[in-house]
Amino acid sequence: MVTPTARAAATETGGVRDADDDPQGDGRRRFEELLASESRVEPTDWMPAAYRKTLIRQISQHAHSEIIGMQPEGNWITRAPSLKRKAILMAKVQDEAGHGLYLYSAAQTLGIDREEMFDQLITGRAKYSSIFNYTTPTWADMGSIGWLVDGAAICNQVPLCRASYGPYGRAMVRICKEESFHQRQGFEILLALMNGTEEQRAMAQESVNRWYAPALMMFGPPDADSPNSQQSMAWNIKRFSNDELRQRFVDMLVPQAEILGVTLPDPAIRWNEERGHYDFGDLDWTEFSEVLAGRGPANAVRVSRRRTAHENGAWVREAARAYADKQATASAASRASAAPEKIAS
């Protein structure tokens, strides 16, 4: 049993120390030194309020994405076509829940409650990765999500293992290990389909056609249109620009697509000797902004599914709290009644 729960929160609960606590500027000097020396900023260190805010936003959005990301794949757990695939898929969806929990814990070290973050999610006030607003009509989507979505996530996240904020960077180290399993498993699903019947091959290709562009958009808008990126890079949170990461991803995909025998749905893909990279075509960012604006295929369903689960489970959580309170009262009472005896002995 691996439950990556509140360990980070338990050991790293930080004091909230912002500009107000730093009249002499010692904290800021130390913070700058840590960044300059590529060291980690820890929860008890002084940090600028905007750095804290940026991290809370980024880590909680990342956590929400893991949690919402369980749904498109959860959709196929009951229909997985072999018991081995069923087991792998169940384990994967669980891993994502674990990632979410682990990231919520990392965000908690910055002074925000998990309840508060979760409430933002289920009331639709928080963002999460738009990729999970796409639907999974076919089994091949389990392959495409693993190969392309987890693949893009890895390109995004490997540099985050060196993020300046300690709890975040450490969470990412662990998460990246599992994401690379996920990517391999997705690749294997597609490979099995591509080695299968005509129908299976068509299923794989059709799915890759649908997921390719949305996966490339996971790196965010082109650098010219990405206002938050520069500050994040200066703070050693982000290490590479959106476009750099997207390029890396395409460079990784093209040879893998060849092994699979699938065609990436972009006729402009071609090796550029001069750049040492693959060229690729422009993406349709109007669709991206449509999905981002809540008009994607499954925006409404994703949040409401979580909210419904949360609301249906309210009585369970209340019961657990009530029981824990009763236990605490009972053990306090038994301690109190045992105390005089101890003194006597």
Binding site: T3, M70, G74, L101, R305, T308, A309, N312, G313
Partner: peptide
């Protein structure tokens, strides 16, 4: 149960 559990920990536990 997965993605329908009363809390995330139970998504993980029932799944396990």
């Amino acid at each position: 149960w997965i993605t329908h559990a009363p809390e995330l920990e139970e998504d993980v536990a029932l799944g396990n």
